[in-house]
Nucleic acid binder design. Structure first.
Lengths: 143, 143
DNA sequence: CTAGGTGCAAAAGGTTTGCGGTTAA
DNA sequence: TTAACCGCAAACCTTTTGCACCTAG
């Protein structure tokens, strides 16, 4: 059994329990997210999904992605004002975007670190979530 | 002499030395940024600037803001897919956005902290800049 | 004088919406 | 059966662009 199939079981469970229908479109969009994990945009997901499901529309891809985010099966990744990207990595993590090749990499908190420790958040503020984007050069583009 | 006037001297210096003209529009846009420091959007800057300079256009505001960012007099603040906000705080800092009142607050790195220490960046990667947005509740909205 | 800036209007790019028809549960 | 969902097209919002005119240096 492949990792994709294992996670598809998670899909059925999560979708079912959250009161959302298990439609072929949503399954296909989620499959695309899981198959490459390269943080595709909605349009890229659309192009890939269309290869297997020729009738799917861009609006439906947006709808499906929104549903997946609602269920907690995917996260949105915003990089400046570019098109929103999507990833199925649910762990608390940030992103590194290479200035040269534009690839997106996941980065995790270093051992013993936390956002509260890193940032001087004023007294009485509660941090619920974060969006962190680091930019620079990846090892491939770093001369 | 007010803080605004003091910083306006910085404006003239920076603009002049960066080969950009000191136009009234750019001065006004920069004045708006300095006067409230509440991270306004381009449209908000436009509305405020128009009160003093009725002929200014939204496109000019966008141009002026871009010039200020180029000169290093302002920074862009992207919060998810909302309109880009602008701030004249040039120090390395992140932002906290309140989920309830939507106000934007600057947050600085805690003593002894750095992005490299916080995030597990892969070997060979170079971090050049970062964009950090924390979300949650500010002290006012935190019941 | 003239390179660079301004203002207008129109376009672009990403995302959302309204609606009639379809379908998973 | 029926509330939820799909696909299409059109709308929406922020941002950018082309171009004629203007102005700071």
């Amino acid at each position: 059994m492949s990792a994709t199939n294992e996670t598809q079981a998670g899909y059925e469970e999560t979708m079912g329990h959250s009161g959302h229908r298990l439609t072929p479109q949503r399954r296909e969009v989620y499959d695309v997210l899981l198959s490459e994990r390269d943080h595709p945009t909605a349009t890229e997901v659309f192009i890939r999904a269309k290869q297997k499901m020729s009738t799917i529309s861009l609006a439906t891809v947006y709808n499906c992605l929104e549903t997946l985010v609602d269920c907690g099966l995917a996260k949105q990744v915003n990089v400046e004002r570019e098109a929103t990207r999507y990833c199925p990595n649910l762990d608390e993590h940030g992103h590194f975007v290479c200035d040269r090749c534009a690839k997106v990499f996941d980065v995790t908190l270093a051992a013993g670190q936390s956002l509260d420790r890193t940032w001087q958040v004023p007294e009485g503020f509660t941090v619920l979530r974060s969006e962190v984007t680091l930019r620079g050069l990846c090892n491939n583009c770093n001369t």
